[in-house]
Structure formats: C-alpha cells, structure tokens
Design a protein around this nucleic acid. Structure first.
Lengths: 112, 112
DNA sequence: CTTCATACATCGTCTGGCATAGTATGTGTG
DNA sequence: CACACATACTATGCCAGACGATGTATGAAG
C-alpha cells in the first residue's frame, strides 16, 4: 500500500488512464487498479467514489447507470475534456519523475 | 511549475535527498531544488518552511543556527532516522513510478 | 440461513500545500 | 544617499483531498 500523499497526485491520473481504454464502474476500477499495478495502488472505495464525483464535476468523466445485469452499476467514461486532461497530466507526471531522477531519487531506490 | 497535487508526495523526499549530501538552509533548499530539477520543482517558501518544521518535528532533520555570515541562517541536516526514512520513501517512490508505468502512463507522456 | 462478495454512497477527521503577510538585513543602482 | 530588490525566516488561515468508519442493498455460496 502506498503513502496517501504519493497517491494524491497519482490517483486521478491512474483512474483517467484506465477509463481511456473503456468505460468502467467504480468497484471495477478499484480492482483493476490493484491488479494492474501488482497491488501497489490499493485505493479504497471511500477514496475512489469521491474522486469520481470530483472528476465528473469537472467534466473529465461522465457516468451512466446500467440496470441490465444482476445489480446496478454506474459506468464512467472519459470525456474529450478528460482525454485532454489525461495527456496533460501524463506529461506533468513525466516531468516529476524526471525531476526526481535528476535529484538521484531513483538511484537511491535501486540501491535497495 | 508542477501541479500542487503531483508535488505532494515528492516534496519531502526531494528535500531529504538534498540534505543527504550536506546540510543546507531553507532558502538554499528552495533554490537548489529549482536549479537541480531544471525549474520543475518550484517550491515556495511558505511550502518549504512548514515542511521543514514538520520534518524536524518528526526527528527526520535537525536544525542549527549559523550566525557567522552576513545574515543568520538556519541549517538543516539529515538525522539517522531521516536517512532511513529517505531510503524508505525512495523505495516507495520507485513503486509508484513502476505502478504508473504498468498503467501505461509513461508511454502516454512519451507520445507527446 | 448465514456469511461473504459485490456495488454504491456519505460523513468526519486529519494532513498538507500555498497564498498572504510580516520582519529584518544586505546589495546594487541612479 | 535613497530606494528597489534579493536574501532569509516566521506565522496565520483557507481549502482540497485521502481515507477510516459506517450504512444500504443484493447476489452467490456453503
């Protein structure tokens, strides 16, 4: 499990990235995140749902209820605005990792 | 300048890393951070000083006033406890970047 | 029929970034 | 010399966001 502060910047970007592939519902996002990152990003539901509402409020994702299956699911999809934001955030993320690399943080970690 | 949220986890680690090399005073940390990261980490004083007080409160850094020069400077140095924390945080940071890589965030950024 | 997994929602607390503002002194410039 | 600007640290207060705790409802498994 990752430090809450480190999660802070990474969380929204990760969620947007998953939604880029295909629409997903909340519970699915939590599980996919954990699986795809080998258990590194363990985002509780009380973290994810507010995060989704926030993204929706900003127009970066949109939701739609699906009543078809066994139980109702709220699917979120990436909006065009969200797609742009994802590209932006990904660029920023790369900057941050470059900066950390320039400080020698990565090498420090590799020494372990 | 980097988004505040992305900065969030990275700040303390970056500061600890700089202090690993040699003791530095606050103002110096702000400038060194910006220079070493090619202007990516621009940390305001109102962010850095509270951060330092926080690290000192946790015993990760220790301070000492230097009245020798033209104006008083408060030098911070890494404590043994801070050194351990740095190693830990660096490992965590590596995990996060790995996770982001696994999600394809890096490739997204490279496409730009 | 009880236990566990699925699925979404909300509240309250704590942390921390940062804008704002203030104090004090050194340095450069016209 | 006056004044602007850089250096250097401190303090206050707002706001965003992570997450633990809690609640509701239903399906599947034993």
């Amino acid at each position: 499990m990752i430090d809450r502060e480190l999660m802070r910047g990474a969380g929204p970007v990760a969620v947007l990235k998953l939604l880029e592939r295909r629409p997903m519902y909340g519970y699915e996002l939590v599980e996919t995140l954990e699986r795809q990152t080998n258990g590194i990003f363990v985002m509780g539901e009380s973290t994810l749902y507010p995060l989704l509402y926030n993204l929706e409020g900003k127009g970066l994702v949109a939701s739609r209820w699906d009543e078809e299956g066994a139980r109702p699911r709220k699917y979120y999809r990436l909006t065009p605005s969200g797609k742009r934001r994802l590209a932006e955030d990904a660029r920023r993320w790369k900057s941050v990792t470059e900066a950390m690399g320039a400080l020698g943080i990565v090498e420090e970690a590799l020494a372990w």
